[in-house]
Write a protein that binds this DNA or RNA. Sequence first.
DNA 1: ATCGTAAAGGTCAAAGAAAGTCAGTAGGCA
DNA 2: TGCCTACTGACTTTCTTTGACCTTTACGAT
Lengths: 155, 155
Amino acid sequence: MAAVSDSIESFILSLLGEEGVAELRRNELAHYFGCAPSQINYVLSTRFTLERGYLIRSKRGGGGYIVIERVPVSAAELQALVTEQIADRLSRAQAMAMIGNLMESEIVTCREAAIMAAALDKYPMATRETQDFLRAQLMRAMITALLRDVDSRSQ
Amino acid sequence: MAAVSDSIESFILSLLGEEGVAELRRNELAHYFGCAPSQINYVLSTRFTLERGYLIRSKRGGGGYIVIERVPVSAAELQALVTEQIADRLSRAQAMAMIGNLMESEIVTCREAAIMAAALDKYPMATRETQDFLRAQLMRAMITALLRDVDSRSQ
DNA sequence: ATCGTAAAGGTCAAAGAAAGTCAGTAGGCA
DNA sequence: TGCCTACTGACTTTCTTTGACCTTTACGAT
């Protein structure tokens, strides 16, 4: 029954076009489709997820915007890493192993690996549970960042 | 779209050019962009901060002016950064400004900056206090890691 | 020298303009 | 019935823009 969300989805898909990049104003789009602005967020968070190969950037306030980007194929492996290998918890050992792999396969440089390792090392407060949870989040966030410009290697 | 502040920012950036120095009249610029004079101050204080590597000098009264100067951060100054600028708490905005500066000064690459920014972005659980505390720790850890092999640049 | 005034720039708080979050409602369908 | 997906609205957070009021400076008139 042609839910509004479906229309919004295909509209965004058409915006993406060849480029694989689309910029939009949330309120504008919501008004165009006669729906609540938050429905745009709903569509983005259900149909344009990382699992499906999309990255979202946005800015609030005056002149705000939302940018949707299709993850390039070259980054597919990284994406799989994020969505498959990292669960909601990640031990220190697991993390270090992953970083080792990333470096081995020349996906990250030595310096990049060092930065990541530093961030994933250990956290003072909290229980082990919390630490592993946080570590998973950080790892996901960092790899996702890499995803964002995987082509721009060797600076 | 393209908030006025953004236009003002890129205008100033173009003024800075190679020299890294720009002089301007507040009222003149405000008139040129059709905005309130104080918006110039807004742009300066949000985009041309010391954290981002800019120095502002100005004079009031007749013949007044504003001078913006880009000040590069040397790798050696990183150490001071760790010990001075990063207290036991670090806000998201501060962190992002610092990262921008590190990148501008070519101490970190674009990708490295992206990784750091991702790690420092936000931590959903926790209170604001805790987040800022954790962020300070992570920033310190990552910069220390960079210092450890600051020579091994360009991998 | 002193004072007055106009011509800068500075500050701050309030209002405005986006987008984000989340919990809850409603409609289909197994 | 109970679950899943679609949808909504109230509330939050972040960023921008504006205006009223303040401070500093140069310059000319006394």
